[in-house]
């Protein structure tokens, strides 16, 4: 009697879990398909001529061509956009990491009463989204005479990246035992020496997180550079791709090729560093 009841319960449990699994696959499958298909569709259509696209939007390209890419590359002046994007991304990332780890060390290990206020102001900045300041920034940059310069872009990008950078590095360096710093002090080492010899080598993990966060956000940034720069020579990839929206809205082939060129670098980056990116995002989503 009891074993029979047990078996029934177990059977129901098995059935329930099979159903739950089927439902789980259905849910995940649907949303994964919804995520992937538009991107696949875009890529596939970038190999069709605009004429073919208009009659065959859903099928595979009948006569794949690279012509769209050639024309998009030329029209979009991607040869100029790519170097700019690299300059902005690498420059911002390097500066944010260097300044954040340096200041983070000071905040974490050099006791000063003023830290509470200055560090606090950075933490507040995490939620103070800089996009809300794009108009005053535009006016400031114009006033300073640095509109349409790489300097302005780098300055604004670094300023925008510092709050989260400083928050993460300060919290990280706080976790390094203070005894290490103190014993070096007793040995007569200056703070800059301690920074170089002890802190910097230990800060590699937080520097990696910052690099990941900063590369993703800088490479894709649009709202700010849109008000800082108008010359093609200074434009980044997203700004250049935006050109394909209005002037070319009917030349689908070229537009799709431009979008594929635009998303390819980040997709490759993601494929290469997926684990680090995922960890970085989870660590970076702090409210301060």
């Amino acid at each position: 009697m009891r074993t029979e009841a047990n078996a029934r319960v177990r059977a129901r449990g098995l059935l329930g879990s099979a159903l739950a699994k089927a439902a789980a696959y259905l849910v995940m499958g649907t949303f994964t398909l919804m995520t992937v298909y538009p991107l696949f569709w875009l890529t596939m259509n970038s190999f069709k001529t605009t004429r073919e696209f208009q009659v065959n939007m859903l099928g595979l390209p009948m006569d794949p061509t690279l012509e769209n890419f050639r024309m998009a590359w030329e029209f979009g002046e991607f040869g100029k956009l790519f170097p700019n994007s690299f300059i902005y991304t690498i420059g911002t990332t390097a500066l944010v990491i260097a300044l954040s780890v340096l200041a983070g060390f000071a905040f974490a290990k050099i006791p000063r009463r003023v830290t509470k206020w200055i560090y606090g102001s950075f933490v507040v900045g995490i939620l103070l989204t800089i996009n809300t300041l794009m108009i005053p920034l535009f006016i400031e940059v114009t006033m300073l005479g640095i509109y349409n310069t790489r300097l302005a872009v780098l300055l604004v990008y670094v300023g925008a990246g510092l709050p989260i950078g400083i928050y993460l590095s300060t919290e990280y360096i706080r976790g390094i035992p203070t005894a290490l710093v103190e014993s070096a002090r007793i040995d007569g080492a200056g703070y800059f020496t301690i920074f170089r010899r002890i802190i910097l080598p230990m800060a590699a993990p937080v520097a990696t997180t910052l690099a990941i966060l900063q590369i993703c956000s800088t490479w894709n940034e649009f709202a700010l550079i849109n008000i800082l720069v108008s010359r093609t020579e200074l434009k980044s990839l997203p700004l250049g791709i935006f050109k394909f929206s209005s002037s070319l809205s009917t030349d689908y082939g070229k537009q799709f090729a431009a979008l594929v060129i635009g998303m390819a670098p980040m997709l490759l980056f993601y494929v290469a560093f997926r684990k680090q990116i995922t960890r970085g995002v989870a660590a970076g989503a702090v409210k301060g």
């Binding site: 538009p38 894709n220 979008l259």
Partner: peptide, 22 residues
């Protein structure tokens, strides 16, 4: 699943905007 569902976050918003516009 985690990897694929995060993909749209990694792409430039401008690309996403123009893709859905078409």
């Amino acid at each position: 699943w985690q990897g694929v569902l995060y993909v749209p976050n990694i792409i430039s918003i401008i690309v996403v905007g123009l893709l859905w516009q078409s």
